[in-house]
Computed example of a mutant assay.
Amino acid sequence: MGRLDGKVAVITGAAAGIGREAALLFMEEGARVCVADMRQPEGELTADQSRHAFFHEVDVSDSESVSAMYAETVRRYGGIDVLYNNAGIMPPEDGSILVTGPDAWDRVQAVNAKGVYLCCRYGIPHLLERGGGSVINVASFVALVGAATSQIAYTASKGAVLSLSRELAVQFARQGVRVNALCPGPVATPLLTRLFADDPDAYERRRIHLPMGRLATPREIASAALFLAGDESSYVNGATFLVDGGLTAAYVTPE
């Protein structure tokens, strides 16, 4: 038996990176999955890995688009049990507050913060119709610590996700809906890998701060999401679920 047998999950940002790994893992564990993203070719490629998945193009910053995503999932599968609100952006023009312009700020908040708000706003009613479910909102370790190499809009957006998740967890707990904030540390996604390939010294400057001496793999983060999505985490609610290799626990590291 799979750990998600009988469950229906909607995963945003599922065309690549952590979202794709989560979609594949959830499928392996028996879930029917809406693979939601703006990138159609990559999203369809992910969904094609299972006959129990479909791709849906979505703009998480748009309320009608989000509502349509859930409506199509319900039409196909009869209901929804898991919301994995993973979609997010960190554009290169997001840096120090002294250089990040209002347009970049607004664009990041629209996807990272408003997107999670909309996915919860329109998704939680579907969980309530099923008598409960799990909401996994992707925040970040940067919601808890500051960084000298700042991405101020991204950091602020993830702080908003963390606070929103806590409040929703309290509001809906007695109705069977659990809401947790998944907070990854640095992950070896294709984007980050390419950036460090162009500047190996930048990776070494960051690696020294990682107690485990390496980045997380996308599958390691997806495995944490799997735990939060399934019944094994039935008493985990309102958690700041850190998967950061001990980064936020460290003052100094052995190196």
Rank of each mutant, 00 (worst) to 15 (best):
M1L: 11
G2P: 10
D5F: 14
D5C: 13
K7S: 07
V10Q: 04
G19Y: 00
G19I: 03
R20E: 00
A22M: 13
L24Y: 06
L24K: 07
F26K: 12
V33S: 08
V35C: 05
A36R: 05
D37W: 06
M38W: 10
E44Y: 00
A47T: 02
A47C: 07
Q49C: 09
R51W: 12
E57M: 15
E57L: 14
V58K: 01
S61M: 01
S67I: 05
A68C: 02
Y70Q: 00
E72A: 11
R75I: 01
R76A: 02
V82E: 01
L83A: 02
I89Q: 11
I89M: 10
P92C: 10
T100A: 09
T100E: 06
D106T: 15
Q109M: 15
V111R: 10
G115M: 07
L118Y: 09
G123A: 08
L127G: 05
L128E: 01
I136S: 02
A148L: 13
T149Y: 13
A156R: 09
S157M: 07
S157T: 03
S157E: 06
K158S: 00
V161L: 03
L168M: 13
A169C: 10
A173W: 07
R174P: 08
G176E: 02
R178P: 00
P186S: 04
T189W: 04
L191R: 14
L195R: 15
R206Y: 14
L210V: 06
M212F: 14
P218A: 03
R219M: 12
I221W: 02
A222W: 00
L228N: 06
S233V: 13
L242I: 09
G245E: 08
A250Q: 12
V252L: 13
